[in-house]
Design a protein around this nucleic acid. Structure first.
Lengths: 208, 208
DNA sequence: CTCTGTGAACATCTTCACAGCT
DNA sequence: AGCTGTGAAGATGTTCACAGAG
């Protein structure tokens, strides 16, 4: 299939969230315009986004809410449970381990790792914090799909290397460090300080 | 000035981080190529990004590390302290309150708010959690520049409305909800579940 | 008549390539 | 010779506008 822009995938996620609300309200169909209004985009954008994956709508009518949300879930790969491990049980790792939004979307936290003996053995929302020394053997056994990395910047790259070597194929990084991964591994980074810096830029360069 | 793309601002932040490391190592000058290698981009991109704001380099030589980092800090509005409040002292709010990366960049957390009596009065990294009822009066008094919103999705919009009404001009939202703000308020959202969903999409649609 | 699906026009962002300082 | 600064070309993403299905 043709390459899909990340911005399109982002919007699909948002459409899905709204479709679920809309379905809960008992609606059967929805037009591209209604979907657009919610997501802060245009009806043309919605139709274009969906058209990359097929034609799900009925002209004159709109889209079946349930059929469309099922289809988007399929497209996004949310029709299954993803097994996740979290590396780093500091403040951010702990927050992630207990974040409801993950569970609700089929992301299952299998285990959490840390190097600090004071943390190892404790439970975070039912998941025991394990010694990072167990990482390699646990990954071999548990075969997680995704690793969340929430450690200080200076230890991030060595941990990424260990994760990659152990066979992890996807990493969501929260450490404020630029990381290198081989071609076959997918890496995404969320950097909260950077988001604040963009806000800072926008504040000093205020539109009117 | 011409409108600058967000992607450009993002890259400037990354260049700055690398410039600081580079400066600490005692280097005087740096070429666009070296900056690019670090940020995972190209030398042409670096030069183009910088050219929007002026000509800081010397042909044949490169850029002065210290002059360039100072200039980028100015561009991003990081030459000052930004006062920040955090609304929501749950797991994410608490993690944000104690996040070092903010302090290091001149973002100063003035206060944290919550509605839960069990949390009010406790301290997070030296900052006392205050009752959300005090929001309006505190904002009038403290005049924070930025509010971080880390509350459940269903109470996010009412809180945004209160923040906006009290005069907050910039909000960084961590709640998984689509929010509305008036034209003059800057809103950015970070949605961690959405990042995982993009990863999910990339996993099921693996490149080769 | 309504609302989708989509090629074509438009806008935006990135890369190229080279003139021009140092 | 080395490296910047920048128009121009190319690639990518968004909006328009309309044919056509229901």
């Amino acid at each position: 299939m043709k390459h899909i822009a990340e911005s399109t995938v982002r919007r699909l996620s948002r459409y899905l969230r709204f479709l679920e609300d809309f379905e809960a309200q008992g609606h059967q169909t929805i037009s591209s315009g209604a979907l657009a209004a919610q997501g802060g985009t245009t009806s043309a954008q919605v139709r274009k986004d969906l058209s990359f994956f097929g034609s799900f709508g009925k002209r004159g009518l709109g889209y079946s809410v349930s059929a469309l949300s099922t289809r988007i879930r399929e497209i996004l790969g949310l029709g299954r449970t993803w097994n996740v491990i979290i590396v780093g049980a500091g403040k951010i790792g702990a927050a992630l381990a207990q974040y409801r939004g993950f569970r609700d979307r089929g992301f299952h936290v299998m285990s959490v790792y840390d190097a600090d003996p004071a943390r190892i053995g404790r439970a975070l929302d039912g998941v025991i914090i394990r010694d990072q020394k167990e990482l390699e053997s646990d990954i071999a056994r548990l075969k997680p799909d995704i690793a969340l990395l929430a450690v200080p910047g200076d230890v991030a790259q060595p941990l990424v290397d260990r994760l990659v070597k152990s066979g992890v194929r996807a990493i969501l990084n929260f450490a404020p460090a630029p990381l290198q991964v081989p071609e076959h591994v997918t890496l995404r980074s969320v950097n909260m300080a950077l988001e604040l810096e963009i806000l800072s830029y926008e504040l000093v360069n205020k539109r009117t």
